[in-house]
Amino acid sequence: MTYYLSEKLKVLSFVAIILVLYIHSGFHDIPNEIQGMAFNHYLQESISGMLGRCAVPLFYVISGYLFFLHTDKGISDIGRKMKKRIKTLLVPFVIAALFFPAFYLLMEQLPFTGNYINGEEAFSKNLQLPVAEILTSLFWHVPEGTAPWAFHLWFLRDLIIIVAISPLLYYVRKAIRGSVLTFVLFLLSFFQFEVVPVYALFWFMAGDAFLVKLDKVNTYWIPAVFIVLSVLELAFPELPWKQVRIPIIALGIVSIWNLYNRIVPITFELKKHKWLAIACQFTFFIYLFHEPTLNIVRKLLVVLLGHSSLGFAINYLVSPWIFACLFILVGYCFKKCLPRNYAVCVGGR
């Protein structure tokens, strides 16, 4: 991996986490939010829905590329990477999963906080459930749902599952070409599987098979097609867009990948851009703990900006950046004051 590519992955990961913040900063069509505010609806759908849907697949693509990088020694390298992922993925997942209910329980003890967190009922009622159901909701998914209490952790949960089956992936990948395996997973993504996250697995293996080849796909028509399809999807949402979701997202990822190459020169060095370099250090920290803390920022802004179309629009546009700046500061202080604790929380990143 070249130095330019290494820096590129760091910057694009930070861009992706900003898009994730936009996804979770949107307001809904319910009373006292953006019901009937068409401009706000289309603004959110354009950023969170059309562009934002590329964020998580991009994380999987990068993860797949990095996982199978430097595995020339065979299954022993896969075992080494699996062992490393216990520290870098599993431990942070457990900590973040426990942080989510702990934060809600803390908020219940503080007066005047109910309006700044989601949920109509006290979270402590969940702790009256059977132990097995509590553990399932913490680390797998809530009843009748697809994500755990800390709903944003579904990405990390599925990534851990993929790493757990990586020896099998390694042998299948070795038996057939990576591109063939990716195509098979694409076909399987149209079906529902209870345990195996096929959708995530598709992007993970696509990163291994195609990421380094994207630089060769340097054409203007790809972002143009992505934009046109996104506009059509906004205009005609009743059409069966779900059937072509993956190809459209792939066009978006290729567009982002090559746009970076056009904007950032080959001589770029992240260390020479102090604030961007600092921000990129806390991408994973922001991901782990942005829920439910992000809600406080965007709901406080509602108090300041009001329940108007313009107020909601400004709130939506700025809250991810305000939160990112605040959490970069929190992460920086945490890392400086308690470096060992911080290292454990983010898996040594």
Rank of each mutant, 00 (worst) to 15 (best):
M1E: 06
L9D: 03
K10N: 12
V11H: 07
S13A: 01
F14C: 15
V20H: 14
I23T: 12
E33M: 14
Q35R: 05
A38N: 04
N40W: 04
Y42P: 05
Q44G: 12
S46I: 03
S46T: 13
S48P: 00
F59A: 13
Y60T: 04
I62A: 00
G64F: 04
L69T: 10
T71S: 07
I75Q: 05
D77T: 11
R80A: 13
K81D: 01
V91K: 02
F99R: 15
F100C: 04
A102M: 01
F112Q: 14
F112A: 15
N115K: 08
E121N: 07
A122W: 02
N126G: 13
L127F: 04
P130H: 11
P130I: 13
A132W: 09
T136Q: 13
A147M: 14
H152M: 00
R157P: 03
L169R: 11
V172H: 04
V172S: 12
R173I: 06
A175H: 10
V180K: 13
L185C: 14
S189V: 12
F190N: 04
F190E: 03
A200S: 01
M205F: 09
G207R: 05
D208N: 12
F210G: 05
V212R: 13
V212W: 10
K213R: 08
Y220R: 08
V225R: 03
L234N: 15
I249C: 08
A250C: 06
S255P: 01
N261K: 05
A277W: 11
F284W: 00
I286M: 08
R298V: 06
L300V: 11
V303R: 09
G306L: 09
L310Q: 15
L310M: 15
N315C: 07
A324W: 00
K335Q: 03
K336G: 10
K336L: 13
G348H: 00
